[in-house]
Structure formats: C-alpha cells, structure tokens
Design a protein around this nucleic acid. Structure first.
Lengths: 211, 211, 211, 211
DNA sequence: GATGAATGAGCGTTCATTCAT
DNA sequence: CATGAATGAACGCTCATTCAT
C-alpha cells in the first residue's frame, strides 16, 4: 500500500509539511511561541486546525521540527562547503559566514531559532542533544583539526574555543535581532572572525595578559 | 504617607519583597517561567496569593524584577571592584570572574537569568534596554579604555568585542547549566580570558588569518 | 439495481457488515463507547474509515445495530426454542438459560449490551422501544400464558413479574461483568429460576409476608 | 488556620457545594453526562466555571460525587430506619419503600443515578466498590439475618437473593424513567415485595417448578 | 464500491488577577 | 496591609464525518 504512493504523492505531502513549517516560523516569530495559537498557524498555512496534527505531534513538536528541519539542511550545506576546503581557518570562516548569512536573510527564522526555541531548560536540553549538538561537534572538529595542523593554538581547550566562537556568533545574531534590526548581519563576519583568531590584545602584550 | 514610614517598617517591607523575589527564583528555576504558578511562588514565599500583587505588578513584572534586582546589585559590586583597578585587562578579568562566580554559586538564579528571562523578543528587548544594557556598557567602556591606553587592539570595534566577550561568557554559563551541570564554572575563567585576549590563532599566523 | 445484485454479492456485503459489527463489539467493549474511535473500529475490521459509513449511518447507529442485530438473532432463536415447549415454566426456564448462555460465552458482547448501550436516556429509550421491547413482550406473554394456565400466580401483575425476572437476570449479568468476572454465569440459572418462582419466603410465612 | 474557620464559614462552603451538586444533577439529567458541559453546570449553579474546580476535581469526580453524596445520605437514613425494626421482612420492606420513594420524588436524580452513572465499565466498577457496594451489603445482611431467623428460605444463596431484589427494584425504576414517566413509582412497592417473597409460582406447584 | 486525507466544531481545564473581608 | 475564594477568558487537541480520487 505505501509502495503504491507515487513520488508525486509523497512530494505533495512534503510540500504541505513545508508550508506548515513556514507558517509556524512566521507565526511563532510574530506572536512568540507561547502566545501563538495553533489555529493561527493553521490559518497561515491555509489548512484546517486538525491537519496540523496529521503532520506534527503538537505545538511543541512543531517548534522542535522547525529547529531540526532548518538545522538539518544547514548542517548538510555546511558539510558540503567545508569538505571542499583544506585550511581549518577557511573552514571556520565559511561556517561563520553561512551562519550569519542564513539567519541574516530570514529574520523570522532567526527570531524563532534564537529566542523562541530557548524558552525552557527542557527544551534547550532537547536542542543541545539534537541537531545543535551536531553543529557544535562540527565546529569543534574544525578547531581540533586546526590544532593538529598547528594553525590554531595548541594550548587552548577545543571545547572552550568552540564555546567562545559559537557564543560570539550567537550573541551577534541576538544583538542584530534585538538591538540593531536594520543592520546587515554579514558585514560583521570578517571583523568577528579576525577578533576570534587574534584576540583583543596585541601580540606584544600577550605575555602580560596570559598571566 | 510613605515618608511617615519608619526605617523599620520599610525594612520589613523590603524583607518580604526579597523573600518573594527569592521564592520566584526558586519556583521559576524549578518549573520554568511559563509553567510556574503564582500561587506556588506565594506558597514558597509564605505569603497569600494576593500579597504578591502588593509588591509586584504581575507575573512578568516579577520576573523582570528578579532580573533587575540581581543585576543592579551585581553591577554595583562590579563598579566597586572595577574602580579599585587601573589596568583594563585586570578590570576585564574581574568582570568575568565575578560574572562566573555570581552565577556559579547559585544555579537557580543562573537558570532564571540565562533561560527563563529569554523567552520572548519583547522581554529580551526590555532586558537589553535595561540593566543588561548597563552591564554591556560597562564592559564596553573597559574595552574602549583599554584601546585608548593601547592595551587592547585599536583596530577592532569595541561594540563587537563587547559582544564577543559577553557571548563567550554567556554561552559558557549556558553549557554549564545545560550540559555540564556538575562542573565548576569558575575554573574556566583564566583559559577563557586568555583565549579572548590572544585569540585562537598563534601570533605568527595572524597575518594570514587576518586576510 | 439492488435486485441486480447476485446472492453472492449480497453475501459479500453481509460478510463485511458482520465483520464491522464484530469489530465494533470488540472495540466498544475494550475502550468503551465514548472513548472508542471509529478509526479503531475500522482498523479492527480491516476496512477504511470511510467504509464504515457505507454500512452504517454513524457511530451511534453502529452501536444500535450491534444491539439490534444480536437481539434479533437471539429473539429468533428464543422463539424457535419456546415454540417447541408447552409448559410456561419450561419456557421461562429456557429463556433464562439462553439469556445467560448467550452472554456468558461472549464477554465483549455482554459488556457492550449491558453497559455501553445504556449511556443515555435517549439511547435507552430507543432500545426499550426496539428489540428490547420485543424481548420483554415475549417474556410477558409467557408469564400471562402461565397465569391463564394457572401455573403462575394470577394475583400478580404480569408486567411487574416480567420486570422482576428481567431485572434479576440483567443484574446477575452485571455482577458477573463487574464483580465476578471469572465465575460461570450459567451455573446461577437453576437457583435463580427457583428463587423467582418460589420467592425468598417459605410458603408457611406467605400469609404474614403478604401483608 | 483551618481552625480559624467558623462553623458559619464551613457551612457557606457546604452550601455552595450542594448548589453545585444540585446543578450537576439537573444538567446531567437534562443533557446526559457526556453532552453536558461544565460551563452549563456552572451557569446553573450560578458560579464561575473555575469555581467548580475549587469544589470538585473535574467532570467525572463531579458525577461520582453526586452518586456518593446521595447514596451516603440514603444509606444513613436506611440504617436509621432499619435499626428501629426487628423483623427482617419489615426491614426489607422499608428498604424497598425508601428506595422507590427517594428516587420517585426526584426524577432528575433518578435519571442520573440510573443512567448517567452507568456509562462505562470503569465507572461502574468504581460505583460497585463504593457506596453501592455498601448498599448491597446492607441488603445482603438483612437477607442473611432473615435466613438465620428462618423467616427467609435457608436453601437460597443470600448473594443471589440480594441480586434478585436489587435487580428487580432497579429495573422497576428504569421502566419508570424510560417507559412510564407519569406513573407513581411507589405504588409498585407492595406488589413487588410480595412477588419477591412469594415468587411467581403458587405454592402447590413449587415442587414441580423446583426441579 | 472503497479509500483515507482533510476538515473544523467543540470543550474541559488552568491560572493570573481581583476584591470583599 | 494581608488574605484567599472566586473569577472567566483562553486554547490545544480530538475525532466523527466527508468527499475527491
């Protein structure tokens, strides 16, 4: 019976699924996850309320699916791009650029990923152990590879470095969303990368600052 | 009328206010802001439900007050400590240490500040324009002062540096809360500071990485 | 058009109808009428959801049909057996025996008939005016016949006697379902019949008890 | 704190509780348990929707409470009356009379007890193990006492006799509700009692019928 | 006839907030 | 000031039924 479904049928289902996810992004971004009503998501997706539940297990699962779906595609893209490169520094550069580009071109999505998905410990725990963890692993691998090649400092903890890089980028997106909504997010890419690589203290003072 | 209150009366009021705030921290941390019920906060504070509204304007104001109250005291402490110091680098160091210490000694509080207060754009906007903004300004001033003195790189954007520093510390606290709950938060202080100052790339490669 | 159907076609339809009815009995018994979902009945009957509506007008009609179908066959059987007998007492005996046997061999069915079909006045009214009324009439006829022949007391109201007999048997089935699920239902047949016939008071006290 | 409640306060609470229970009886009787909406019960009781939940745990608990409350009072009354009497036959008589009188004077209540509370196995199980079980025990004790005194047949099973008596009375109430709504329920008391005591077969035929 | 994806009306329950005491 | 009983708006989810294929 499932075999009788043609590719076109499956695709029709997927199309509707995407429409619902997109609607969820818009509505969650507009009203906030808690204030958003499922009926409004349905309206935005132009389906009946009940239809949402044919595609997702409930409101929370819908939010989780937005996150996973987007991050899955993002990670796939990232891997493709990263594989083309040799230099860990270049890899790091492309990761930051794609991160900023992806969110910078879709405010609603950025809003949902940065804010609405972080509303509870339980939910953040789910994310951390899911696709987000995968993203961070990818980042960490690049750092470690760079350390092995001697391109990145060997005396730093790779996990901590990953943490700093992600924290800096993440916070940048937050500022963009909350404080400078009109600015161009990607323009910070180069200066941020440079700062992450070189630190904020000139080399001649590294000794003193190392203390 | 308020003037007729004696110091002891005011203090009694303040004591109860603090008790409610502490109760809110515990309950919000335990149940999450949205799941937490005002009646449970009242129970924890050992006051009647209605009494909460004699001290705070509502649930959201209570959360906001937790944030502001804690941050106010934190900022005061910070200013006192920072004023004692001359070296911008030392100032930065003390800021990070106090940040990690303050949250590291109080998980419930950390949880509320890191997670529960970030549930919506509107709320985060409020925070950013409030005490959090003050904290970030303080941080930025230190960076700028360091730049003027030549202790920090002059070719970086102070705002962006502030962003990076805060993002790294903030993310570190997040990881501690969500992933390594048993670890000691403060032990990352020195390595993180070093990494922020020196970057992740050895000085000899700075040219290449600066690109 | 219906005439053009061959016997085999009708039979195929009837087979599916029966399969759905049986599925309904199982699912209603397992989950209760209100909690039962039509989709589960369909699944149990191995037909599509929509197919149910080609055979029955809806959920309530399905329940009603279970009742009517089973009772129709039961009444037919009863009439056949009763017709063979002359003695009203023997007729009463066979009725009680068949009643207990039929339900005693099919818990799911018993459950649906005893409990699920009695959930509302409207529904019970429908039943009382339908096949159940027919069953009670049959019972009443036997009582009246017995009275005419002098085998049953003439000074009792036939309707009331019918009521007592049915009530006693019905309640016996209920106890079996709810309290003694493991017991053998039919073994009560003889003692119950005897009690219905002779009462609970010894003949010598009938005068005093008649009062 | 609870001690500070005066008798008048407790009574005020109890008064409201009763008002809600009465409203539930009316609404459940009118619309049926499943169709009845809590908001209508609230409206009938002239309280806010939420108030219902300050007195009862939910819709099902409300129904259960109707049953338990009424039956508790009924059983208390029954015990009082029964204690005054010596003769088991007289005790049986008063039980049947009170049963028919209590329900006969309150159709809505009768409807809820007879029909709406019997909507599911789970619910009937709850009832059987609760107050209803207590009522049946009381009845059984009377039968057993009568057997010991030789007033009731010693060769019958007391449980089965209890079953017959209750079944007959219960079914009588059902008929009254569903078929003869205008009739007087209590007028059947004496003939029913007589029939239960003497059976439907004249004494001279008892031998043959006993078979 | 058979299918099963889509529909959308319907409701029990929660809980922040109020206000009479 | 403090209390806590009462309020009532708000909404996620279910599932019987329909109908295009």
């Amino acid at each position: 019976m499932p075999e009788s479904k043609t590719a076109r049928e499956l695709s029709a289902r997927e199309v509707k699924r995407r429409r619902i996810l997109r609607a969820a992004i818009e509505v969650f971004a507009r009203d906030g996850y808690y204030s958003a009503r499922m009926t409004d998501v349905a309206k935005e997706a132009e389906v009946a309320d009940g239809t949402l539940y044919l595609y997702f297990d409930g409101k929370e699962h819908l939010l989780l699916s937005v996150f996973d779906d987007v991050l899955s595609r993002f990670i796939d893209q990232l891997k493709t791009e990263v594989e083309k490169l040799e230099d860990p520094f270049a890899k790091l550069k492309i990761m930051i650029r794609l991160h900023l580009e992806t969110l910078g071109r879709d405010r609603a999505l950025a809003h949902v990923l940065q804010i609405e998905t972080r509303h509870s410990r339980r939910f953040m725990g789910l994310l951390a152990r899911g696709k987000l963890g995968e993203y961070l692993s990818l980042l960490k691998e690049i750092v470690e590879e760079g350390q092995e090649l001697g391109r990145f400092r060997r005396d730093i903890n790779a996990g901590l470095a990953t943490n700093m890089i992600f924290g800096a980028v993440d916070e940048l997106v937050n500022r963009w969303l909350l404080v400078d909504p009109s600015e161009d997010l990607v323009r910070h890419q180069t200066p941020l990368l440079k700062m992450l690589c070189q630190g904020i203290v000139p080399c001649e003072f590294h000794e003193g600052a190392a203390e």
